[in-house]
């Protein structure tokens, strides 16, 4: 999927709106092994099924929390677009996701605050599987430009609130 180059303006954002969701999967053991190899982390519960099930008493291989957070950040980054910036993102890993699940990252706008040069947009977010079970609730703050205004400063400097 190619990220959107669409610029979203603070002026056009409405509290309660959802941003376009991002779906990944089904996440096979090959996806999990590829991620473990890419960042060189060898925790066996993500690729060694006998170890995960027999030793650690898990129901199956687990989708890495570190991979799930990538999906959330990609969702936010793509929506912030080429003139915005993802300032903050937080997520808790409240439930396990197992190998072969398909996951969808989502976010909904919960607030907006206009600063002098750009706006702050707050969001609630999460990751659900195809059964609709939430595993990764969190929050984010994205900065967006005003219509007719300049791009959000880069590198980003935290505003004094």
């Amino acid at each position: 999927m190619i990220p959107s180059t669409q610029v979203h303006y603070f002026d056009d954002i409405n509290i309660g709106d959802s941003i376009p969701s991002l779906t990944k999967g089904p996440l096979t053991s090959a996806h999990l092994m590829r991620w473990s190899a890419a960042f060189e982390n060898w925790h066996k519960i993500h690729y060694d099924a006998p170890f995960a099930v027999e030793h650690d008493k898990l129901p199956a291989l687990l989708v890495n929390g570190s991979l799930k957070q990538q999906f959330v950040v990609q969702l936010l980054k793509d929506w912030a677009g080429p003139e915005g910036w993802v300032w903050k993102a937080s997520f808790q890993f409240r439930a396990m996701n197992l190998v072969n699940e398909t996951l969808t990252a989502w976010a909904t706008i919960t607030g907006k605050t206009a600063l002098q040069d750009y706006g702050l947009v707050t969001l609630e977010l999460g990751i659900i599987n195809t059964a609709g079970k939430e595993s990764t609730p969190g929050r984010a703050t994205i900065t967006l430009p005003f219509r007719g205004g300049k791009a959000v400063p880069y590198p980003f400097v935290a505003p004094k609130l």
Binding site: K24, A37, A38, F39, S66, Q74, K77
Partner: peptide, 27 residues
């Protein structure tokens, strides 16, 4: 591996001029 082949990661191009050229994913 994260299935995000954003052009800003791939080479210096129009999409990453704001960042001074090709960059790595946020995390």
């Amino acid at each position: 591996a994260i299935m995000d082949e954003d052009p800003i990661y791939q080479a210096d191009n129009d999409t990453n001029q704001r960042y001074g050229g090709a960059v790595a994913p946020p995390l």
